[in-house]
Design a protein around this nucleic acid. Structure first.
Length: 272
DNA sequence: ATGGCTGCTTTGAGCAGA
């Protein structure tokens, strides 16, 4: 059975829990990285998620950010070796969680190392927040270089807040040099690919103008005025076993949607 | 040029998101 992994910026898990549980049931994802849970740990809906058949590890803070990993109990042992944030970067904001996922019938020598990341938005070019985003991405590259050495089967999924190429943007001229699309941001994304990571979405043919985020304003989703900023980056060992990938825009059509849609990939792993 | 939505916040108008 192929393994389906996914990422979703839910923009408040309190508001979106039903969407997440419905999507897991209908889409069949086995592992899901969440971003922008916006929940302190005391308020995280652990029981509801576990009752739905998933292990969960999470790290939050008041109001902003917050990340989690869900892993289907019928396939995985409880997540282990959990690490929150980047050990190489002092950060007051909670934007990364990583864990080992071991198959219940594990035969592989290496676990699946799964990381859910929420890259800073950056606000606008030439702001303090943009500088923070640049420093954050520099540190992420150093961390992932280490992680790739330690974990041959590494998946780094999340909201990267970067549209890698013009074809990932509904109106490239309007977005030229703007935050999410600026050349320095794209160079940071390319630097991650240069480590050997692969963008799962681009491993397979895709429809044109398939995006993962649309502004809440001005009917942007109905007009498909979106960006592709949510990505699954795979180590070469995983990329070689990636059978399919895509973005599911169905949840963006629901009432009270997240402004992001889930992105996913399937992996043919022999008991990862 | 501005604000356009949405969620959050010692429930309010302001911040943040992208």
């Amino acid at each position: 059975m192929p393994l389906r992994i996914a990422t979703w910026n839910v923009n408040s898990l309190r508001v979106r829990l039903a969407h997440v549980l419905d999507w897991l049931a209908s889409n069949g994802a086995d592992v899901l990285g969440l971003q922008e849970t916006k929940l302190i740990d005391e308020k995280f809906p652990r029981a509801e998620i576990e009752e739905a058949g998933f292990h969960v590890v999470f790290a939050g803070q008041p109001t902003y950010n917050g990340v989690a990993i869900l892993a289907r109990k019928s396939i995985f042992l409880p997540p282990s070796q959990v690490v929150v944030n980047n050990p190489l970067f002092q950060d007051e904001q909670v934007r990364i969680i990583a864990a080992d996922l071991v198959h219940v019938n594990a035969t592989a020598a290496h676990p699946l190392r799964f990381m859910s990341v929420y890259v800073p938005n950056g606000a606008a070019v030439d702001t303090d927040k943009y500088d923070y985003k640049m420093r954050w991405l520099t540190a992420l590259k150093k961390y992932l270089a280490q992680q790739l050495n330690a974990y041959p089967q590494l998946a780094v999924v999340g909201d990267y807040n970067i549209a890698p190429e013009d074809r990932d943007v509904h109106d490239p001229d309007a977005w030229r040099d703007q935050v999410l699309c600026s050349a320095p941001e794209r160079q940071h994304f390319q630097a991650l690919l240069d480590l050997g990571l692969k963008d799962a979405f681009r491993l397979h043919p895709q429809p044109e103008a398939l995006f993962s985020w649309w502004d809440y304003r001005q009917a942007a989703f109905r007009r498909n005025r979106g960006l592709r900023i949510d990505h699954l980056l795979l180590s070469s060992a995983l990329a070689g076993r990636c059978a399919a990938s895509g973005i599911d825009t169905a949840p963006r059509k629901l009432d009270q949607p997240s402004d992001h849609a889930p992105a996913w990939a399937t992996l043919e792993l022999p008991h990862a």
